[in-house]
Amino acid sequence: MRRTGPRRWLIGALKALAVAAILVWSLAPILLIVSSSLKPERDIFAVPPSLTFRPTLEHYAALWARWPEFFHALGNSAVIAALATVIAVFASLLAGYAYSRFPSRWVNASGSLLIVVRLIPPIVLTLPLFPAANALGFQDTHLFLAVLYATFFVSLGAFVMRGFIDQIPREMDEAAAVDGAGRFRTLFRIVMPLAAQGMMAVAVFVAVYAWNEFLFAFVFTSTRAKTAPLVLAEVIGNFDGVEWGVLFAAATVQLLPVLLFVWLTQKFLVAGLTAGATKG
């Protein structure tokens, strides 16, 4: 009993140290970006770093004046992320219901195929897709980019939804069938409301990915559907030199909406990560 106290204290201290390390690792880059966007240009890369400074909004004013296309690109990112989220959530709901309620060798094989496709590096997929998209006139459109993002995440979304739907008793489906409800009516009237938390989890995953994705946007867009990450890359590659203050301001503007979205939906994100871990 005498050894239990010090041992428990040591374990608690190690856990606290691990949590602190994770917080520093995760939050330090964000704090660096936000604070640098508020520093005068001379203080951004000062050695040693200036911890006390007079905040300024000059970099945000310069961003608004010199890079108006960035805010248009933010609108494109929002539209594409919203479209991708709706498509991915609907497709994941249908796929998750099929995997949960109609298990078979071929259905399970298709699930394995989804995982295999998900493991393929995205750059490999762009090679055959680029000439096809160009020939069909889908290049530089919001809908095509949204479909790409949704397709890339349906594999993950399907298995997240399967984990939630598995926890819904099959007896509810049978009771609905006795009352005369078909499969689709059962899905949308019974299963979907009970699996709403899983749908929100999938929505969080897809929206965050679509908001931050760069490679597909770089390959398949040029002007009309250009997203915010592409404009950030243009700020870095400016011929007049990198305006670091403007770059940090743009990164902050692009970062804050997704941080707020994740903070508001964090319980759904955790639920998605633990889907299927327990049986209801």
Results as ranks from 00 to 15, higher is better:
Phe138Leu: 15
Phe152Lys: 09
Phe153Gln: 14
Asp179Thr: 06
Phe144Thr: 01
Tyr149Ala: 06
Ala95Asp: 00
Gly180Val: 14
Val107Ala: 11
Ala132Ser: 12
Thr126Ser: 10
Asp179Asn: 12
Ala133Gly: 15
Gln139Ser: 13
Ser155Cys: 09
Gly157Phe: 14
Val89Tyr: 14
Arg183Val: 15
Val124Asp: 07
His142Glu: 06
Gly163Glu: 06
Arg185His: 14
Asp173Ala: 01
Ile168Lys: 00
Phe102Gly: 00
Leu125Asn: 00
Ile115Gly: 01
Ala181Gly: 02
Glu174Arg: 09
Glu171Phe: 07
Ala132Trp: 15
Ala109His: 01
Leu145Ile: 10
Pro103Val: 04
Ala158Asp: 11
Ser155Thr: 12
Pro121His: 09
Leu148Asn: 13
Ile120Pro: 06
Phe153Val: 06
Ala158Ile: 02
Ser112Asn: 07
Leu148Tyr: 13
Thr186Gln: 13
Phe130Ala: 09
Ala91Ile: 12
Tyr149Val: 04
Ile168Tyr: 07
Leu93Val: 10
Asp179Tyr: 11
Ala176Asp: 03
Phe153Leu: 15
Ala98Cys: 12
Ala88His: 06
Arg185Leu: 10
Asp140Leu: 13
Ala176Gln: 08
Ile120Ser: 04
Asp173Glu: 12
Glu174Ile: 06
Asp179Ser: 15
Val154Met: 10
Ala88Arg: 06
Leu148His: 09
Met172Tyr: 15
Ala150Pro: 05
Ala88Ser: 15
Asp166Ile: 03
Val117His: 06
Arg105Gly: 07
Val89Ala: 03
Pro121Arg: 07
Pro169Ile: 07
Leu136Cys: 08
Leu136Lys: 03
Val160Phe: 03
Arg162Ser: 02
Leu114Phe: 10
Asp173Phe: 08
Leu143Asp: 01
Leu145Met: 10
Pro103His: 01
Asp173Ser: 04
Val107Gln: 05
Thr126Cys: 08
Phe90Arg: 12
Trp106Phe: 12
Asp173Gln: 03
Leu125Asp: 05
Val160Pro: 01
Tyr99Arg: 07
Pro103Tyr: 04
Arg185Phe: 06
Val89Pro: 02
Pro103Asn: 04
Phe184Lys: 07
Ala88Asn: 04
Met161Tyr: 08
Arg101Met: 05
Tyr149Glu: 06
Ala181Lys: 00
Ile168Glu: 10
Asn134Thr: 08
Leu148Phe: 14
Ala175Pro: 00
Ser112Gln: 14
Ala150Arg: 10
Ala135Val: 04
Gln139Pro: 00
Leu136Val: 04
Leu143Ser: 00
Ala176Thr: 04
Arg170His: 10
Ala150Gly: 10
Leu136His: 08
Ser155Glu: 13
Asp179Phe: 12
Phe102His: 13
Pro169Asp: 05
